[in-house]
């Protein structure tokens, strides 16, 4: 199937024609942090957690010193893999960058893990644990955001939205319903529902829709199903997010 390869942190990674760097890496069992990437969807490239450096060079100066020239930075989810390229992911610089990006998301929204039904299986939380994020560092926005409980089965808590657009993509591409979209821009960008009232209850979302089950954080929640798994037995209590990277490998039929 594949006879071409590139190097990720000096390890040879095979890839198939058309695969992006993260897709090939995850298929090979190498974890690259990510939030907006999802194995069932085409890469999106907005969270930037998967940023890598490509083809850094080391040169020797006239006075004999070796200097590293950093390669270009790119989102590994949207950058096509190319034979022979050298990709860096687990470097101090990139780990620090990723911590900063997680901290940015943590202060932008209102992320109070102790009262969140998604705690223990939240991708943002799991990733923050893995990166060793001990604090949000920046001043909190304390954004004033709404909760929408108008739907019979689904609750929306916009406080936790990280704008990964997975629900938007799932509803448009898999469910063919277009229940979610985005409005505003910049720091006013926000999720909206496909109804004149703006309420989720006035849309045709069903609890079984992909869009209702794809949220990586605690925005789209199923009513009557909170806190079902005890503390200590939840997904990231048991194993870190970076464990078993092939679980994130792209499935064949991406929409």
């Amino acid at each position: 199937m594949s006879n071409e390869s590139f190097f990720l942190d000096e390890e040879e990674i095979p890839f198939a024609e058309g695969q992006t760097i993260i897709q090939a890496a995850l298929s090979a069992g190498k974890y690259i942090p990510h939030l907006c990437y999802h194995p069932e969807f085409k890469p999106h490239g907005s969270c930037k957690l998967c940023t890598v450096r490509i083809d850094s060079r080391t040169i020797t100066t006239e006075d004999g010193q070796t200097v590293k020239i950093p390669g270009r930075a790119a989102a590994s989810c949207t950058t096509p893999a190319q034979a022979g390229q050298h990709v860096e992911s687990e470097t101090d610089e990139l780990r620090d960058l990723r911590r900063t990006l997680v901290q940015m998301l943590l202060v932008e929204g209102n992320h109070y893990c102790p009262s969140c039904e998604k705690s223990g299986k939240c991708m943002l939380q799991g990733l923050a644990y893995d990166l060793g994020v001990m604090d949000p560092h920046f001043p909190q926005y304390f954004s004033k955001r709404e909760v929408d409980a108008s739907h019979a089965d689904i609750l929306l808590d916009f406080n936790r939205c990280i704008l990964c657009e997975l629900c938007v993509r799932a509803s448009a591409e898999m469910d063919k319903k277009n229940v979610f979209s985005l409005s505003g821009r910049g720091n006013t960008k926000h999720l909206i529902c496909n109804s004149e009232s703006g309420m989720l209850g006035d849309t045709n979302l069903a609890a079984t829709d992909k869009a209702a089950n794809v949220c990586p954080v605690g925005v789209i929640l199923h009513k009557r199903h909170g806190f079902e798994v005890p503390y200590g037995q939840r997904r990231f209590d048991k194993a870190p997010i970076s464990d078993n990277a092939v679980q994130y490998a792209p499935v064949k039929e991406q929409v």
Partner: peptide, 15 residues
């Protein structure tokens, strides 16, 4: 003027 698509620009410009 940030479009808000990516995390660094959406949040970083405001910070």
């Amino acid at each position: 003027e940030s479009c808000g698509f990516c995390t660094p620009c959406r949040v970083g410009t405001t910070l």
